[in-house]
Design a protein around this nucleic acid. Structure first.
Lengths: 240, 240
DNA sequence: GGCGATATGTATCCTACCGTACAGACGGGG
DNA sequence: CCCCGTCTGTACGGTAGGATACATATCGCC
């Protein structure tokens, strides 16, 4: 991948920065390819780099000591991994797993810290993004509790599709079950239902989104809600 | 209530500040009595004041448009209400409801902003507290999904007891049902079970915690986990 | 001391999902 | 082309909790 020092970077946050600030931050960045299954942080572990995914994406998973786990946040080209650094904490509270392989930009934590300290625009932007994350986290708590597997699966597929920038996803039922905190068999049922409604098609780990609008219809309102908040705070909030 | 400009304020965050900084911040504060049921913020509404509860406490509730709601965070004398201001956002993502009446200190959002800008110690402390909140929010998502009503109720009572600084709580089953996102009858069953185990006693809205250790035993690990994180980050992290 | 409001106990049927188990289907490597 | 690992379909009993309904208990008030 070639790094272009002017123009857009392909990450929504970076691209929201004033051109000069973006260019400056990019000088500290390194292009990497994230590979599926790579662990970027363990809960309680140190955050060594900040990542700005381009076509890749990262799942953030909360692990309970008894083995219960649940994906609570997803980071793609709309976001950034390493938010605790904004708070002056170098530790990740969550498990961070590369879930969609692809390119990303990364920058060492210390370098990032220096950029952050000197760029009010970056501070403002990332604080806004933090607000969005808070919003999404609390919504996730409610959604996971009240909504049914089929709707949650639909939501999850939409979120993933957005971040993968592709209609083709590579995910087994087993994996989806882990993300949503349900049985594998539960995913099979829900996925079959979505397939029967011709919203998706899948075959041994390859899922194709056929009808995006229909999938939104089948999902709980949480998908639309998350997007609305992001839009309001990050995009429309750019120049308030 | 008399405001003492030196010595401890009775709020864990304020009391973690260097003496001078605390005294300075307190000059902008006003002592108020929060009354049960008072709404300090609506989702999407403006945050007019920052609150530091003393013996009072505040529930933060996520509301979905379809009526589903769930308490996702609780603020007592260990915390502060108005965190989005740290992020430069003057809007509350959650419904904030006074759930335990009692004294609190409050400070207008604008005044708070000025103090914050001038006090690195305050910034550091509140950013750490933010980290704790993030941690607790993600834990809440997992807990709510996986753990049973009885354990969640036990956890909730413990959290409330800590913040009320009292063994006597005033809560109806109806109210608890709303907080935990379950039916009122579900709370009746769980509460009866806890009472039969002699961990609590209750009577028409008055709940007494009889056996704190037993209640911890009956709760899911999430109670202990939340406290551990708070201790690590806020208390031990004071002078890292 | 009776009345109405509020709080709690209990019952019934219902649904979504769990735990487990196993069988079939597919695909890649030998 | 066959075998084995992986992925998916399906089944079965079990359970937590939902929706609804109604009965009972207790308090404060008149």
């Amino acid at each position: 991948m070639v790094l272009v020092d002017f123009g857009l970077a392909g990450n929504r946050l970076l691209d929201s920065l004033p051109r000069q600030e973006r260019a400056h931050l990019l000088t500290g960045c390194e292009a990497v390819d994230l590979v599926f299954g790579e662990v970027l942080a363990e809960p309680g572990g140190r955050i060594s780099h900040v990542y700005f995914p381009l076509n890749s994406f990262i799942s953030q998973i909360a692990n309970l000591s008894d083995g219960d786990r649940l994906e609570v946040a997803m980071v793609g080209s709309e976001g950034m991994f390493g938010m605790p650094l904004i708070l002056g904490v170098e530790e990740s509270p969550l498990h961070a797993l590369v879930q969609g392989a692809g390119p990303a930009l990364r920058i060492p934590a210390a370098v990032f810290g220096r950029h952050l300290a000197r760029s009010p625009a970056l501070q403002t932007l990332l604080k806004r993004y933090f607000y969005v994350l808070m919003h999404q986290l609390s919504r996730m708590a409610v959604c996971t509790h009240f909504h049914q597997v089929e709707a949650r699966l639909a939501r999850w597929l939409l979120m993933t599709q957005d971040r993968a920038h592709s209609d083709q996803l590579h995910l087994t039922h087993e994996f989806l079950a882990m993300m949503l905190g349900v049985r594998r068999a539960g995913i099979t049922l829900a996925a079959k239902a979505l397939q029967k409604r011709r919203l998706i098609r899948y075959h041994r780990g390859d899922i194709t989104v056929l009808d995006r609008a229909g999938l939104i219809e089948a999902s709980c309102g949480c998908y639309a809600s998350d997007r609305r908040i992001y839009r309001q705070v990050i995009i429309e909030g750019e120049a308030p």
